[in-house]
């Protein structure tokens, strides 16, 4: 039963990782920008949600605020950090350091505003009850499952069926061609950042309710998103989703044989192995070299 229980919590963690990583992959796929500050969007959304709930807002309203914050942050990064850097042929390194700087600013801002302790919202949804002897399940699990299902479904339809969605996928391949078709690469890239950042919201909201948030959550989420999209194959949405799920499950299952302090490291061992032996990732087509 222990294994089943760990698998269940692995799936719950993994689904939320999958959504966040998919947001990262969407941004990278469309703009070829490695959005290291993606975790900061998660942190802002999570803390915004906690702030609103504490102020007495209803959950849907608070989630809306979280979405606004995340999307606003994504658009800000696109317009005021990445675009100026890319204008003068900024290298990958430059983007990395600038994004990291922003993450530090967001993290310290949260520390000043909310303190360094962890914050959480209390809700009966996270209280687990036994569904089988020894197997506990909280309603938060079904919410995570539903959120992941609905969002991935909607996203898939959007990217496959709508004109804008197809253009978004084509953006990275050939921006010039898009221009010829009268589409603005600039607006599409903003759209990618908005959508990608919004995908971090479900994870942030459920994170605030289940494990709680701390100011350093931004770097943790960034690491997970990076790892998941590499395991899945960089730029592939499906891959990032699968990668997130794999990481979440690995983190939890390893606890059955080792102490819990190895669980984060376990995720990265999986990552390391993938890079060495299958750098294309689970679904990835893009070659590493």
């Amino acid at each position: 039963m222990l294994l089943a229980q760990l698998l269940i919590s692995g799936i719950q963690t993994g689904l939320l990782y999958a959504l966040t990583a998919a947001g990262f992959a969407l941004i990278f796929g469309a703009t070829r920008i490695f959005h290291f500050a993606h975790g900061a969007a998660y942190a802002l959304a999570g803390y915004g949600f906690v702030f609103a709930v504490r102020a007495g807002w209803s959950w849907p309203l608070a989630a809306l605020l979280a979405t606004v914050l995340a999307v606003g942050f994504g658009l800000f990064m696109d317009a005021f950090v990445y675009r100026p850097i890319q204008r003068h042929t900024g290298s990958f390194f430059t983007v990395f350091v600038a994004a990291f700087g922003v993450v530090i600013v967001v993290q310290s801002g949260i520390e000043i505003g909310f303190g360094r302790a962890f914050v959480a919202v209390t809700s009966p949804l996270t209280r687990a009850s036994a569904v089988l002897p020894g197997l506990y399940l909280a309603r938060a699990f079904w919410i995570a499952l539903a959120a992941a299902g609905v969002l991935f479904g909607a996203l898939g339809l959007f990217l496959a069926r709508t004109r804008t969605g197809i253009a978004l996928r084509a953006l990275a391949e050939n921006p010039d061609l898009l221009r010829a078709y009268g589409l603005s690469a600039r607006r599409l890239s903003a759209l990618a950042f908005a959508l990608g950042s919004a995908l971090a919201v479900p994870g942030a909201v459920l994170g605030a309710a289940t494990t709680g948030l701390s100011p350093s959550v931004a770097s943790h989420v960034m690491l997970v998103s990076l790892a998941a999209s590499v395991v899945g194959g960089i730029g592939s949405l499906r891959g990032a989703a699968a990668g997130g799920l794999v990481l979440g499950i690995a983190e939890n299952l390893v606890v059955s044989v080792l102490d819990t302090q190895w669980s984060e490291a376990a995720g990265f061992v999986v990552l390391f192995a993938f890079i060495l032996f299958r750098p294309r990732g689970i679904f990835g087509a893009a070659l590493a070299r």
């Binding site: 039963m1 222990l2 229980q5 760990l6 919590s9 692995g10 719950q12 963690t13 962890f118 020894g134 506990y136 289940t210 494990t211 709680g212 701390s214 959550v217 943790h220 983190e251 939890n252 606890v255 059955s256 819990t260 302090q261 669980s263």
Partner: peptide
């Protein structure tokens, strides 16, 4: 460490 759900499962076990 921040996630203790797996730990809880082991403790319960």
């Amino acid at each position: 460490e921040q996630q203790f759900s797996a730990l809880a499962a082991k403790v319960r076990d």
